[in-house]
Amino acid sequence: MGRQWKGKVIFHVDINSFYASVERIHDPSLAGKPVAIAGNPKERKGIVVTASYEARAYGVKTTMPVWEAKRKCPGLIIRPPDFDKYRAASAEMFHLLEEYTELVEPVSIDEGYLDMTIPFKEGKTVQTAYELQNRMNRELGLPCSIGIAPNKFLAKMASDMKKPLGVTVLRKREVPQKLWPLPVEEMHGIGHKTAVKLKDWNILTIGDLAVFSASSLQGRFGVKGKKLSERANGIDHRSVDPEAAKEVKSVGNSITLSSDVQDKEELMNVIQTLSEKVEIRLKRKEVSSANIQLMIRYSDRQTITRSRKLPNPLFTGAEIKRQAAELLNKHWNGKPVRLIGVTALNVIPLSEAYKQLDLFSYKKDMKEAELSHSIAELTNKYGDNIISKGSSLKK
């Protein structure tokens, strides 16, 4: 992908069998085995949420009843969902993606778009994708597929073309050859009901949709019909929008250590560095947090995440480090550490954080965070009452 590439360069990163992959991080004995995540796994009416590729080879599918999945795959290992683990792994995934570009748009817990146009270097796009894929697998234990294309729709379609662990390039000029022969229901954005309606018009493939009258589609489906026609022709003008998922849920940093570390002082130094980086990112995003999480991955890939909620939001790296250090003291089992991460969870806008500060500690917290200028701005904007509640209570 050298000099012929023009326009934007968009990556779509999709973690393969996300929930099952996270379970394998926490229990390496699951590697290579058929695994399914299911609600109420002990009940016959439980439903498969996701399945590993080993399980899919037996015909196990999402939404399949547990009893049917076990019939198809007698050796199937079923685990109940653990969303705290999945959210923690998702946060680590997006932190890694943000090392490549600030233009990262989360789509769901396990997939996102990256606008790589600016960091793109001539001839290095595919190489960068493989590097990202390898780091995701090596550092986080998360296998992923990556689609590379000039827009979001084509990048999404490309990432679906090779799973697991695929890196696929899809150019707009390749749409007639690679997309048009596919059944219309395989097109991103077309669900079962829409596919049935399209087939009533004898639209069976993406190619059929591409050449069908756009005005007729718009008359039948409204604005969606116009978009379907554009997508089938490889057209998608949407930009990668980091704000699309709206408010930031967490801010964190992690590092895979160059060698396994068993020295506590060295681990504390790493935590301090990570905490300072978290502070910088919190300030940049203008948010704060009262819930700090520590992630520890041991040399045997066993991973734990522990967090502690606090009465007041934290602003500084020193405070974040203090909480993370206490978590290390309490939960580290003394074994060699491969990766360590510090994350501020459930972040809130600074304006909300001011309101949550404890009556007796807010002056100290404000001073440490050097927020007096911001408070002055808030006072000018909203009036004196925003910071005079303490004196009112005193009376």
Rank of each mutant, 00 (worst) to 15 (best):
A155K: 12
K156Q: 11
K156W: 14
K156A: 04
M157C: 00
M157T: 11
A158E: 03
A158Y: 04
D160T: 05
D160P: 00
K162Q: 12
P164M: 08
L165I: 12
L165W: 10
G166K: 06
G166I: 11
V167Q: 06
V167M: 12
V169S: 08
V169I: 15
L170P: 00
R171Q: 03
R171M: 09
K172Y: 07
E174Q: 14
E174G: 00
V175L: 05
P176D: 04
Q177R: 10
K178Q: 13
L179M: 12
L179W: 04
L179H: 05
W180P: 08
W180F: 03
L182M: 15
L182I: 13
L182Q: 14
V184K: 15
V184Y: 14
V184S: 06
E185C: 07
E185N: 14
E186S: 10
E186I: 11
H188P: 04
H188I: 11
G189S: 03
G189I: 07
I190S: 02
G191P: 11
G191E: 13
G191R: 08
H192G: 01
T194E: 12
A195H: 01
V196R: 15
V196K: 15
V196P: 06
L198R: 00
L198T: 02
L198M: 12
K199D: 04
K199A: 08
D200E: 15
I203H: 08
L204A: 05
T205K: 09
I206N: 05
